[in-house]
Amino acid sequence: MSDKVKRKLTTILAADAAGFSRAMDADEVGTYAALHAAREVFGKLITRHGGRIANTAGDGLIADFPSAVEAAQCAIEVQNELVSQDAALKFRIGVHLGDVIVDGEDLIGEGVNLAARLQSMAEPGGVLISQQVYDQVHSKLTIGFEYLGEKRPRDLPDDIPIYRIAMSQSANPHRVNPIPFTQAYKSTPKQSAGGSSPKHPDLSRTVRLTAMISGALVLINLVSGGGVWAHWAILVAASIAALNMADTLVPEKISRLVPARHVIIIASLTLVNIFSWTGYLWVLWPAGGLLVAAFVRKTLSRPE
């Protein structure tokens, strides 16, 4: 390693234009102009928030910031400004706080790779952040965050917690957003003494609440007499709870193929089919529709 190469802890912002190759095929000159305009937006806001562009490659760029808060705010403002300009290109952005190697003006290493992987997993116009960034910004920015669970970025060996910034709630930086309904029933993963995150958020509150509701319904059914009906109410309560915990209940191998919530819905409909059995397995129709929809969405949203 040369004397000019050194390490530092920094926040990396990785950005890339979605569908750039298709856009170039359709309108090369117009797409290049849109890319140039978008780069001006990135450059202006990166500088405003104390960052610098480390390198650019094709339709993407890598920037680093001394502050995770400034990096996240910059990502939000970039996406909002591109939307306000009705930009022809939409960008995916990933932000990660990690150790990198500085070689002259370039940044390389695992920290940069992870930011790039987060970017590739983001939706066009969206921002994904790592656990390390979330820990630094969630109490300092008045925006919404959605915990997506632990996912394994391409070519990396381990699952990592990933958060999505709620862009629809971030247009007004002074607005304090409520915790999303799905977050109210699961706590944020905490760093352990060793610095790693647990496999799943703490679900004890939801499990206890569902168990108490189920027990109360069974008791009411027994005391009131008549036919057995409690299983229907319990199914509704359990389905709602499972939908809110879908990312932690459904194994990663399955959720990579079918969205976790689709799996929970199919399971709930299957129980409805069994409880109301008339000799016809009708659940195959909605289940098939959900599986086809998941396949189509996965195909259309696959990064280039």
Rank of each mutant, 00 (worst) to 15 (best):
I240S: 07
L118P: 00
D135C: 12
N273Y: 06
R256G: 11
G43P: 05
S120G: 01
G195W: 10
M212H: 05
D202R: 04
G149M: 11
E70T: 09
L114R: 00
T248A: 15
V41T: 14
M245K: 10
A75Q: 00
A88C: 02
A211E: 06
A57V: 14
Q183W: 05
R52A: 00
A211W: 07
D25P: 00
A18V: 03
G43D: 08
M121H: 00
V296Q: 08
G19V: 07
M212R: 06
A63C: 12
K90I: 04
D103Y: 09
R154N: 10
I213T: 07
R154L: 12
A230H: 09
E123N: 14
R302G: 11
A38K: 00
W229N: 09
D158G: 09
H96C: 10
R175C: 14
F20G: 03
H262V: 13
N273K: 07
G111L: 03
E110W: 03
A237Y: 03
R152K: 15
F145H: 02
Y32C: 10
F275G: 03
T248P: 04
S197E: 11
S187C: 08
A38L: 02
E304S: 13
L89S: 01
I254K: 02
I234H: 04
A18T: 05
V127I: 15
A237V: 06
L114D: 00
R302E: 14
H200Q: 15
W282N: 01
D247N: 13
G279L: 05
D64N: 11
T11K: 03
Q169F: 07
F295Y: 15
M245N: 13
L203Q: 11
L9N: 07
T248H: 12
A72N: 07
L45N: 04
L203R: 15
R261F: 05
R297M: 12
I220C: 10
A115L: 12
S168I: 11
R39F: 13
A18I: 01
G50H: 03
S192R: 13
N244R: 14
V95E: 00
L284K: 02
A115G: 12
L82I: 04
V41M: 08
R256D: 08
L243H: 09
T10K: 05
D135G: 10
K298C: 04
V100W: 00
I62P: 04
L243R: 01
A241I: 08
T210C: 15
D155H: 09
S21C: 06
K151N: 13
G226W: 07
I254P: 05
R7E: 12
A237I: 02
H96D: 11
